[in-house]
C-alpha cells in the first residue's frame, strides 16, 4: 500500500514536471503552425522558453492601488495548476488520483480563474475589469459543460477519478466506446478552446485591449509575475489537452510499469497532444473570432452536446 502511494507520487511528480517543461513547446508549435498558414517563417518553437527566461530575469512592477490579491494570484495560479498536473494522467495512469477526483480538478482550475478575475479587477484598470467580466460570462457556461462532459466518461467507466477513467478505458478497449463519448468529446473540445482563450472565443495574439478577455486580466502584470501567469496558462492548455487525450482516448497510455508500456505511453501522449495542438492551430487559422454576444450560442451548443452525451448514456 505504502509502495503504491510512493510509486504513484513518484510518477505524478514526474508527469507534473514533464507537463510544466513541455507546455511552452506546445504553445510554440501552435504559433509555428499558424505562422506557416500565414506564409510566415514564424518565431522559433522554442520562443516561449526564451520569453519565460527573459521575464523571469526581470523585476515586476505593481500598481500602487493593487492589493495582496494581485501579488498572490501568480502563486495561486501556478500552485493550482501544479496540483492539477499531479492528478491528471499524462503518459501513465499512475498519478495522485486518490487525492482528488475530477470535481477537485475542475474546481482547482476554477480557483485559478477566480483569482485571475479578481486580480484583473484589483488594480482598478478598465481593461482588466472588462476582461474579468467577460471571463466570468464565458466561464459560467463553460464550467458546467466541462463537468458534464467528463461526468459522461465517469458514467461510462463508473469512477470519478481521472486516472481510473483512463485506466478502465485503456484496459477494456473499444467495448466501452459509445456515442456518448463522441458527444462529450466535442463538448469538451469547445470548452478547451474557450477556457484557454483561443480563437474563436478570444484572440491570444491581439494587441487591441478593447477586445481582450484573457489578456485583459494579465495587462497589469509584468516581469516574474507575468512569467508565472503565462506559464500557468500554457500549462493549463497542456492539462486540458492531456485530459482530452487521456479521458476520451486513453489508448496507448502506460497502465503498468514495464519499460515498453512507458515508452509507448510517452509516444502516444506526445502524438495525441500534437494532434490537438494542430487542430487548434487549424481552427485559429481558418476562423475569425466570434462576436462577444454570439459566444453564448457556441458555448450553450457545447453545453447541449454535453447534456446529450449524459442522456444518451442512459437511453442508448
Amino acid at each position: 500500500m505504502v509502495q503504491d502511494v510512493l510509486l504513484n507520487s513518484l510518477f505524478a511528480a514526474l508527469q507534473a514536471v514533464t507537463m510544466f517543461a513541455l507546455s511552452p513547446l506546445i504553445i510554440g508549435i501552435i504559433r509555428k503552425v499558424k505562422a506557416w498558414f500565414q506564409s510566415r517563417k514564424g518565431s522559433s518553437i522554442w520562443q516561449p522558453y526564451y520569453d519565460l527566461a527573459k521575464l523571469l530575469r526581470k523585476d515586476s512592477t505593481m500598481s500602487k492601488d493593487a492589493s495582496w490579491i494581485s501579488r498572490a494570484t501568480p502563486y495561486i495560479a501556478i500552485a493550482s495548476v501544479g496540483v492539477v498536473a499531479l492528478m491528471v494522467p499524462f503518459f501513465t495512469t499512475y498519478s495522485l488520483g486518490f487525492v482528488g477526483d475530477l470535481i477537485v480538478v475542475v474546481y482547482l482550475l476554477a480557483l485559478f480563474r477566480f483569482f485571475m478575475v479578481l486580480a484583473g479587477m484589483d488594480a482598478g484598470s478598465t481593461f482588466g475589469g472588462m476582461g474579468s467580466s467577460r471571463e466570468m460570462m464565458v466561464s459560467s457556461i463553460v464550467e458546467p459543460t466541462m463537468l458534464l462532459a467528463i461526468f459522461t466518461m465517469a458514467l461510462i467507466t463508473g469512477t470519478t477519478t481521472l486516472s481510473s477513467i483512463s485506466y478502465s478505458l485503456a484496459v477494456t478497449g473499444p467495448d466501452l466506446v459509445r456515442p456518448a463519448l463522441f458527444l462529450a468529446l466535442a463538448a469538451f473540445f469547445i470548452s478547451l478552446l474557450a477556457e484557454n482563450a483561443r480563437v474563436p472565443v478570444d484572440n491570444p495574439a491581439t494587441h487591441l485591449e478593447l477586445t481582450m478577455i484573457h489578456e485583459g486580466m494579465l495587462l497589469e502584470y509584468s516581469g516574474k509575475q507575468l512569467a508565472l501567469m503565462e506559464w500557468a496558462s500554457w500549462t493549463k492548455f497542456l492539462l486540458f489537452s492531456a485530459i482530452l487525450a487521456n479521458v476520451f482516448f486513453p489508448w496507448g497510455i502506460a497502465t503498468d510499469l514495464s519499460a515498453l508500456g512507458m515508452a509507448v505511453g510517452v509516444i502516444a501522449i506526445i502524438a495525441k497532444v500534437l494532434v490537438i495542438a494542430l487542430a487548434v492551430a487549424l481552427i485559429e487559422s481558418g476562423t475569425s473570432k466570434m462576436r462577444l454576444f454570439r459566444l453564448p450560442n457556441l458555448l450553450t451548443e457545447s453545453f447541449t452536446l454535453a447534456l446529450l452525451a449524459v442522456m444518451s448514456f442512459y437511453i442508448l
Binding site: 506564409s39 474563436p200 475569425s288
Partner: peptide
C-alpha cells in the same frame, strides 16, 4: 481581417 482575428487572411493582404 486581422482585427477579426483572421490572421491568415490578413497576412495574404499584407504580403
Amino acid at each position: 481581417a486581422l482585427d477579426t482575428a483572421f490572421g491568415t487572411g490578413a497576412q495574404m493582404a499584407y504580403i
